[in-house]
Amino acid sequence: MTLLLAAFDPPYWVSTLIKVLVISIVVPTTALILGMVFLFKVMSWMQSRLGPQEAGPRGTLQLLADGVKFLQKEDIAPFGADRFIFRTAPLVVLMSTLLLYVALPASAHLVVSDLDVGVFYVLAVSSLSVLGVLMAGWASANKYSLMGGLRAAGQLIAYELPMVLAVLGVVIQAGTLSLNGIVFAQANGSIFGWDAIGNPYILTQFVGFFIFLAAVQAELTQPPFDMPVAESEIVSGYQVEYTGFRFLIFFLAEFATAFVFAGIASVLFLGGWAVPWLDTASDWYYVLGPVVLFAKVMIVSFIIFWVRFTYPRFREDQLQSFAWKILIPLALANIVVTSVLKVVL
């Protein structure tokens, strides 16, 4: 079967159609999986609750039931809202997420578009979601939304920079901007000549990993950086006026983005889809690659959501000073050390 997949070379329009289909299936599915596993079950267990029990076996279909409920709701745009922008904003946020999936490699060939500058592309399109959030906040004609939108804009811009700088260390070490290239570099690398497990960059770039996860947490507006959607302060911020389907899109985008960022983190720091003892050119990766990547994504997501359920939230100004005074200098120092070692070793 793996050989069949390897020999599969369809014409351009067929492969494009397949890619579109895969993305449009994968994005909601991953969002559902993360929502179900972490938001419902793991969160419940951490908080000594049972979580959903009734819908489906062990409550696994609860999120589908909720999704259907959202679809039934009326689509309301508040009086005084800028209707066109209000309605487009969730789509802009979702689009940013979809664009992220384009570059995520599930194996050497199972990738929608294997870009030479994958890292650069990912970091660039991830910041597009700010636009949607700001549109939502501004167009809702609601003071809480406005504050939430502005907070989100300030926060997401402040955390772009640490994220870029954190990834730079990896790029320097791998010597490539291609996500697949980074996976190859890790799988074929060695630790002082010992090459049994390759060289996953979490061992050398642990500072970068920490900063990347902190920045991801802020990008996803999750605690401890969830001021843009703080329920107890500004009542879910920019989402407050959204109902039904459009709220569902925000929800999907949030969890799909969490998934894809966890995926990027595993590609950059944990070796991506590769397994240490298997050669990266092996055809087995058509099947094995997605599985391995998925497992790593779940581990990283667990960390992300563990933090989310545990910490209180920062205040907006504390968050900014955390980004500018701690994360960015730390990331710069990391880059300097990485570059020096790269030249020396």
Partner: peptide, 16 residues
């Protein structure tokens, strides 16, 4: 109070 400052879990521990 934890819940209001964003730490969800503390609230559930208190209820428990």
């Amino acid at each position: 109070y934890g819940l209001q400052l964003g730490a969800m879990t503390a609230g559930f521990y208190a209820f428990r």
